[in-house]
Every structure is written in structure tokens, then in C-alpha cells.
Write a protein that binds this DNA or RNA. Structure first.
Length: 497
RNA sequence: GUCCCCAUCGUCUAGCUUGGCCCAGGACACCGGCCUUUCACGCCGGCGACAGGGGUUCAAAUCCCCUUGGGGACGCCA
């Protein structure tokens, strides 16, 4: 059996979104699994809408996701001569014909048919023009498009889809479609087939929205005297209202770069989208690259569409909760030095990165990450909820302020005093600190929790976090004492509430 | 309007090919409890689905039909 060759063929008319990323991922997985090749081909024949900026974000997105390709990028627009050549061949063989209907006429007919609730396919006006009629119209300077001629008779196109099984389409349900515009430029249906032929594509893995094109493309392969590739149509990704995901409607929340900006680990994101329409057949949901490649197969792709459950205006989730939970899983379990490499750019962007984290403070940096990563969901959390561990510029959470400061105004005096007491103790290990706090609580006849939670709020700005004493150890004696002695800002904030 | 595809918890899904092991399993979310100085940590528990109706069969989530619902395609877009 010959080598598997698959392709990812985006059109550069926007950013890479969830749906296209998943298509890219499935193609990549299949190529890697079979030891085949993934070809990246840019379908830029729509010059009007294609942009360089869009192309760049698509490539960046692929790279960020870690989906590498073996050939390309190839550009469809560079092969338009081949496409029109193929069209001419079909024309010469009588498998296509020139159509002189104008766009306006056709639009009108389509509108009329729509209103009359009738079928609105092409009616075949120019299908049987004689050579003389064609010559006459051309002599009169009327421009024409080239239409592919659907075979006559009551036959049907039959093809096998890896996901949907055997599919058939009657010729009578197909209309003669345009393959070359009146300006001589080729159209997608044709270009796509010609390119796939040239690139030696063996398997076409694409979204189910391409299913309607398949019968026509199969006909094109046959007319061109070529064997058809193997098809695998994947179900679509819908939004929570069950509408197809689109850039226009959903904006940033479906853009790949959005997930990078929000602090996703690339592979965690791949892991998540892989599960939108595919499952291994058992309960596993977390896969390393190698495991996913190993387990992936086309025939375990679902047939039904899935919902990408984006939450809008949800204070807790900015995207599908499951995506977040998978990301959190990776944050918790990934190798700590690998995590450090991912947190670095986040801290840099937040302006709180220090070179020493890769030098003399590396030990401290790694153990601190390990301490706080437990309850984080995104990499950005390290610069948000984790900010106090790295810098003094942290904010205080309103909920923490209300619960731990507003209710205990006496802390305004107590916290600085605690700072002084801690200053006097020898070391700074958890036990000593804890003993000191509890002793102080007893002396003042307060619940230990009041002091401990007050300290948490003052020193980290957070309501939640790791064990307080471990946290203090990570932040360090000096900074802790400093923060405890200067709690006025907190109480001013509390008063301002 | 025509054609095509799909249909299991709120969401992602397992089970459907080869009916019985499924009064349907897991994950996320949600709710409750425990742990604790705290928590979007952890642990334990709970809620929660075979769209509806007909068949076939000793037996149907699994097979067949109809209805309903959802999606897609029908461009001189890709």
C-alpha cells in the first residue's frame, strides 16, 4: 500500500478557529499515526478575501498547537493554469460546456424559484447549445463560464465515507456546476480536485460541510480519469445554540490565538478538541501526544455534531468548562521545568519576570510554581492569583477583603504587630510561624482563623491558596514582614467599599 | 423548495456493527458532605439521558418504519 498523504487546506480569510484547528489536528494525527505526510496547502483563489495577515495567524496557530507539516505551504493560486487546463480538457471531451447565462439572469431565476418555493438549481439553459450557437454568441462578444456536465440518465454517484459509510447521490439531484468563471479563473470545486490529484492526496479528512461537495468532486475525479481518494467527513462543531461556529458570529472566543492569550497549554487544547467528535472507545480522556497518535483512528470519529460549550458573560468560565478542566489537569501534572518555560512568557507579559528565576532563584521558582499550580486553571493565573508570590504589585480580591478584613477591623493593629513578632523569631519555617500566630490569637482571645485568614489576604491578596504557612515560606520572611507592617492600604480599600 | 446527514445526562461521550452482561458507564458542570486557616485543591456522595410513536423479537439504547427536532448543502465563496 502506498504512503498516506493528507492535507490541511485552509483559506486565508480569517484566523484559525476551533473548527479548522480540529480539522488540522485530525489530519495531523492520521498522518503521524500512519507514518504518512501532512501537506499544508493554502487555498487562496479568492483574491478578494485572502490576506497575508490571515495566513500568518493560521501558520502561527498551527505552530502554537504543535502541528507540524511535512510539505508546503503550497499556494493554490500558483496553480491556476493547471486548473484551467483541466477544465479545457473536460470541455474538449464534452464533459463540460460553455454557459452564456449572466450572473444577473441566474440570480433572478434563483430568487424567483426561492419565492415560488421551487427547486433553485441551474436549469440547463446552455447545456445543449449547438456548436453554431456557441460560435454565434462568442462572435457577439458574450462572455461565458464553463460548467461541468452532470452525466445524463438515472444513475447515481456512490462513494464510501470512513465516518458516514456508503453514501449515494442521484445525478438528478445534482446540477451542472460552474468550474471556471467568466474571467477565466478556476473555481474551488475544480481547483481543489486538481490540487489534491497533483499533491497525491490519498485521504481527505474534512468537515461535514464538505459532504455536499463530495459527489460533485467524485464526478470530477472520474471525468479526469483519476481514482477517488478516501473520504472521512468529520462532524461539525456547533455553539451552545447549535449554530455552526463561525468567526463572524463568535469572534475571539473561537479563535485559536485567544486560547494562547488566555493561558492555555497548547497540547491541553489539542487534547480537548480531539475529544470533540472522537473518542477512544473507553473512559480515557487525557492523552499525551504519543498516546493520542497511537489511539487515533478515523472509524472512531462520531457522526453527530458536537457543541463547543462557550460560556458568555460567565464570571467563572470564559470558555467550555471542560477545556478549562483539561488545561488545569495539565498544569497540575506537567513536568515542573516544562511548566516553568510556559509560565515565563506570562510573567514577562505581566512585567514581573526576573532573570534570576533561571539562575540563582531557579530552585525557589520551581518549588513556588509547584506549590501554587495545584488550583490554577490557566497559565495566566500565575500572574493573577499567583502574582503576590513574585511581586509586591498584587491586588486584593474583593471577596477576600469583605470576608477577612472588613469583618475584623482589629487586624489593622494586629497584623503589623505580628510582623514585628515574626521579625524576632530565628528562622522562618512553617512550624515556628504557625506557633507564633496561634500564640498571638490565644493572647488576644481571637480565633486562629481570623489571624491566619487576615494574613492570607494581606500577604497574597487572595481568598484561597495553598496552606498559609507554605505560602509564607515561599513568599519569604522579609516580604511577609514588610507586607504585614504595611497593611494600611488594605484597610483604606476596605473603607472605600 | 430540493437533497443529504444526525439524534444517549446541561455539555463531551461509552454502549449500537455481532439485540440479553445497560432499570445505561465515565468525564466536565451543578448540588451536598468531609478535610481544613482558606479555596475554582483533594476525597466521598447525589442530581441527571436512551426525542416521541409504532413494529420485529422470548428480549431493543442497540434492528426496521413513521413523526418530531437539530444540522448541513443547494454561488461566476472556499
Amino acid at each position: 500500500m502506498s504512503e498516506v498523504r493528507v492535507r490541511f487546506a485552509p483559506s486565508p480569510t480569517g484566523y484559525l478557529h476551533i473548527g479548522s484547528a480540529r480539522t488540522a489536528l485530525y489530519n495531523w494525527l492520521y498522518a503521524r499515526k500512519t507514518g504518512g505526510k501532512l501537506i499544508l496547502r493554502i487555498e487562496d483563489t479568492d483574491l478578494e478575501r485572502s490576506t497575508k495577515a490571515s495566513l500568518d495567524t493560521i501558520i502561527e496557530g498551527m505552530k502554537w498547537l504543535g502541528l507540524d507539516w511535512d510539505e508546503g505551504p503550497y499556494y493554490q493560486s500558483e496553480h491556476s493554469a493547471e486548473h484551467t487546463e483541466a477544465a479545457k480538457k473536460l470541455l474538449a471531451e464534452g464533459k463540460a460546456y460553455k454557459c452564456f447565462c449572466t450572473k444577473e439572469e441566474l440570480d433572478q431565476k434563483r430568487e424567483a424559484a426561492k419565492e415560488a418555493k421551487a427547486e433553485y438549481g441551474y436549469d440547463g439553459t446552455c447545456r445543449n447549445l449547438s456548436a453554431e450557437e456557441v460560435a454565434e454568441k462568442e462572435a457577439a462578444g458574450i462572455t461565458s463560464v464553463i460548467r461541468f456536465k452532470i452525466p445524463d440518465g438515472i444513475g447515481e454517484v456512490v462513494f464510501e465515507d470512513k465516518v458516514y459509510g456508503r453514501l449515494e447521490k442521484r445525478y438528478s439531484d445534482l446540477e451542472d456546476f460552474v468550474i471556471v468563471r467568466s474571467d477565466g479563473s478556476p473555481l474551488y470545486l475544480l481547483s481543489n480536485v486538481v490540487d489534491d490529484l497533483r499533491d497525491g492526496i490519498t485521504h481527505i479528512i474534512r468537515g461535514q460541510d464538505g459532504l455536499g461537495n463530495t459527489p460533485r468532486q467524485v464526478l470530477l475525479y472520474e471525468a479526469l480519469g483519476a481514482a477517488t481518494p478516501i473520504y472521512a467527513h468529520m462532524p461539525l462543531t456547533l455553539d451552545s445554540k447549535k449554530a455552526k461556529i463561525s468567526k463572524r458570529k463568535h469572534g475571539e472566543a473561537v479563535a485559536i490565538h485567544f486560547y494562547r492569550e488566555m493561558g492555555f497549554i497548547p497540547w491541553a487544547f489539542c487534547n480537548f478538541i480531539a475529544l470533540l467528535g472522537w473518542s477512544p472507545g473507553d473512559d480515557r480522556e487525557i492523552f499525551s501526544r504519543e498516546e493520542l497518535i497511537e489511539n487515533f483512528s478515523l472509524d472512531r470519529i462520531n457522526r453527530s455534531n458536537s457543541v463547543f460549550n462557550i460560556q458568555v458573560n460567565d464570571p467563572k468560565f470564559f470558555t467550555d468548562p471542560k477545556a478549562l478542566s483539561i488545561n488545569a489537569h495539565y498544569i497540575k501534572t506537567i513536568d515542573i521545568s516544562e511548566l516553568a518555560g510556559m509560565v515565563k512568557p506570562v510573567l514577562e507579559r505581566a512585567g514581573i519576570w526576573e532573570e534570576s528565576y533561571e539562575g540563582e532563584k531557579r530552585e525557589w521558582f520551581l518549588s513556588t510554581l509547584d506549590l501554587i499550580r495545584e488550583r490554577f486553571h490557566t497559565l495566566n493565573n500565575f500572574a493573577e492569583g499567583g502574582r503576590a508570590y513574585f511581586d509586591d504589585s498584587y491586588e486584593v480580591e474583593e471577596r477576600a477583603l469583605k470576608r477577612n478584613i472588613v469583618k475584623s477591623p482589629e487586624l489593622r493593629e494586629i497584623l503589623p504587630k505580628l510582623g514585628e513578632r515574626l521579625e524576632k523569631i530565628e528562622g522562618f519555617d512553617g512550624e515556628d510561624v504557625e506557633r507564633e500566630m496561634r500564640a498571638m490569637a490565644e493572647e488576644l482571645d481571637l480565633k486562629p482563623g481570623t489571624i491566619i485568614n487576615g494574613v492570607r489576604t494581606a500577604v497574597t491578596g487572595q481568598l484561597a491558596g495553598p496552606s498559609m504557612f507554605a505560602a509564607l515560606g515561599a513568599i519569604g520572611k522579609e516580604r511577609v514582614i514588610d507586607r504585614l507592617k504595611n497593611v494600611d492600604w488594605l484597610f483604606k480599600k476596605a473603607e472605600a467599599l
